[in-house]
């Protein structure tokens, strides 16, 4: 069965279809929240940003021009702008920002190790300059293409490549010396 596009779901939503709202929330809500969480490093702020970004999506739905832009690209852009607004107002680092692992997964020891690795990664991400962090999150965690990231961040593809390359180098440097602590010697 062919799934309706995000565009089509937005039209259905604007026409009052409640199922379209649920489908869009299921499709786009997690990614919006994930990006906000990785960029902000704070769960409460990320929730507020994700909710506000989705609210703007609901409000733009009746005026949405199909085919003008990808809904997900538009939403990533709104999300990053909202993150920037928050960062302009305050700077906070919450190394305990990563969601708890779901039950039924790896063993307790593995989960603890995964959790400490996620904490370490998030801590290192928070040390990056804002634009580098955004580019690295979109490229390496959201797995978007460089042209799509360029569209979201309103910069050239070359600038994206530069930001992600410098970001990765900085992350590697920030995490250096923590291999044993993070359990990579045992892998």
């Amino acid at each position: 069965m062919i799934q309706p596009s995000d565009d089509a779901l937005l039209v259905l939503f604007a026409n009052g279809d409640g199922q379209a709202a649920r489908e869009l929330t299921a499709r786009l809500g997690p990614r919006t929240y994930a990006v906000a969480l990785r960029v902000l490093g704070n769960r409460a702020e990320a929730e507020d940003v994700a909710q506000e970004a989705m609210m703007r999506l609901w409000r733009v739905a009746p005026k949405w021009e199909q085919g003008r832009a990808k809904v997900s690209t538009w939403l990533y852009r709104v999300t990053l702008n909202l993150c920037l607004d928050i960062k302009c107002r305050q700077r906070s680092v919450d190394l305990d920002a990563v969601p708890e692992p779901e039950d039924g997964g790896p063993s307790v020891a593995d989960r603890l190790q995964d959790s400490s690795r996620m904490d370490a990664l998030q801590g290192a991400l928070m040390q990056l300059p804002e634009r580098q962090r955004q580019a690295v999150v979109l490229r390496h965690i959201e797995e978007l293409s460089n042209p799509e990231i360029a569209g979201i961040m309103d910069i050239s593809v070359e600038a994206v490549e530069s930001l992600t390359a410098r970001g990765k180098r900085a992350l590697t440097a920030a995490l250096s010396g923590r291999r044993a602590e993070l359990g990579y010697d045992n892998d």
Binding site: G29, Y33, A34, E47, A50, V98, P99, I141
Partner: peptide, 17 residues
């Protein structure tokens, strides 16, 4: 972990919708 959406947040988004 990127596909994780807290239930409470999902409910807030749907209430806005």
């Amino acid at each position: 972990q990127r596909d994780h959406l807290p239930d409470v947040l999902s409910a807030r988004m749907l209430a806005d919708a």
